[in-house]
């Protein structure tokens, strides 16, 4: 859904007064990016759905404090909530390590053969693990560019840096990912 900046500011204003239609429009605008943002870092579909729900419920609770005037601002705000929720979830997982079965619930759309599925899931889990070891800024750039599909300008706005800095972060992030994945492959 595309919204002109003025229209979106008006929509946000109405959402603050708990206008049903306005909140529904904001939700439809943001649900896919928020889900993608979370799903890139979580292994199970159930967990991604659960956290997406938590993010939007928290957003509803805090909508009075939303000062954004455009789509990028709204998404930044939602991603910030999502980062907090993710951090809580990862901390929780650290305290209560999940069973090996959790890895079998990997997000998957079509139905390839079981051995192909296992390989794909394993490959994704490796990338996800490597992603977690990047710095926060590097990870944001990689997620913005390759999971959310943002161009450099949009990524720069999202992470609050200039395009040149984003290029540098992108380079360092890919170099680190390469190093981390090579290490994992070697260990196998």
């Amino acid at each position: 859904m595309q919204q002109a900046p003025g229209e979106l500011a008006e929509l946000i204003g109405r959402a603050r007064t708990y206008d049903r239609t306005a909140f529904a429009d904001l939700y439809r605008l943001a649900v896919t990016p928020v889900y993608r943002y979370l799903a890139a870092r979580l292994s199970s579909q159930e967990e991604a759905e659960e956290l997406t729900q938590e993010v939007f419920l928290a957003a509803l609770g805090g909508i009075q404090g939303l000062r954004a005037q455009d789509e990028a601002g709204v998404l930044s705000w939602l991603f910030q909530i999502a980062r907090h929720k993710l951090a809580d979830r990862l901390r929780q997982r650290y305290r209560q390590p999940s069973s090996p079965l959790a890895a079998a619930e990997e997000l998957e759309a079509p139905q390839p053969r079981p051995e192909e599925l296992a390989e794909t899931n394993e490959a994704r889990a490796e990338v996800r693990e490597a992603l977690e070891q990047l710095t926060g800024d590097q990870r944001e750039v990689i997620v913005c560019k390759y999971v959310l599909g943002y161009d450099n300008e949009r990524t720069a706005r999202q992470v609050g840096k200039n395009v040149n800095a984003v290029n540098q972060l992108h380079h360092r992030a890919l170099a680190s990912l390469h190093r981390l994945l090579a290490k994992t492959e070697k260990a196998r």
Partner: peptide, 17 residues
């Protein structure tokens, strides 16, 4: 040649609700 293919691998993490 070493780094560009990684973009595709990260892109595989993208999932829609």
């Amino acid at each position: 040649a070493r780094l560009v293919p990684l973009a595709g691998r990260v892109g595989q993490l993208a999932r829609d609700p």
